[in-house]
């Protein structure tokens, strides 16, 4: 069972800049993927000449498949400033990791993913919190990558890039900062407060 919903229009629009390449994942769509709403959003809010290309992928969470698709659409992806992904939180994180120099944003909140998680995914996790923060953290989930699930930056407990909880874990926020640095960006200034009401 997978359930995602489209993010509110304003949040997606506020994250779009320049031209956009759009990726939709249809891997688990037979369950609850808001494809009709997504298509409606795109046609009503993104000018056609600002779209460098579109891609429908089966199981975006599979890194090897996704890399092959990216290779086939190199030119359109290169031309775009924003990569807008409609998928679950895992898919967005995989895409952000494969396109580290691009601004990868999510158009979806993930509500439920059980049963599919683990099918093809190795390195990324989605907490199904229903309030996706990937648009603020360069496509790395602060809830699953940080032991404390912090939303506003590192806790200061990491030593040599490793988490205070376990020296085998990388500090999630150091990964986020490094990714932002690659994108030449600073973390967002707004204060984020976790919303548990969608759980």
């Amino acid at each position: 069972m997978l359930t995602t919903q489209i993010k509110n229009k304003e949040e997606i629009i506020s994250k779009l800049s320049g031209s956009t390449f759009i990726i939709k994942c249809i891997g688990c769509k037979e369950v609850l993927f808001p494809e009709t709403e997504i298509d409606k959003f795109i046609s009503e809010n993104i000018e056609k000449n600002k779209i460098t290309g579109r891609l429908k992928i089966d199981y975006l969470c599979n890194q090897d498949f996704s890399q092959a698709y990216i290779n086939n659409h190199k030119v359109e992806i290169e031309k775009a400033e924003t990569i807008l992904v409609f998928s679950c939180g895992v898919g967005v994180q995989v895409m952000a990791s494969l396109l580290e120099n691009k601004k990868v944003i999510t158009g979806c909140d993930t509500i439920y993913i059980n049963g599919f998680q683990g099918l093809t995914v190795q390195n990324y996790n989605c907490a199904q919190c229903g309030n996706c923060y990937l648009n603020y953290t360069a496509g790395i989930c602060p809830i699953t990558a940080c032991s404390k699930g912090l939303l506003n930056g590192s806790c200061g407990g990491a030593k040599n890039g490793k988490c205070e909880v376990n020296k085998d874990f990388d500090c999630g926020w150091e990964k986020i900062y490094n990714r932002l640095l690659k994108l030449n960006k600073k973390p967002k200034e707004e204060i984020l407060i976790r919303d548990y009401s969608n759980l």
């Binding site: 404390k148 912090l150 939303l151 930056g153 806790c155 205070e164 909880v165 376990n166 204060i191 976790r194």
Partner: peptide, 20 residues
């Protein structure tokens, strides 16, 4: 984190963080 202390089995809350 709770894991560092004398109740490592406890739930870490972190509903808010220092900034919030």
């Amino acid at each position: 984190h709770t894991k560092l202390g004398d109740h490592p089995q406890a739930k870490s809350v972190f509903d808010l963080d220092s900034v919030s």
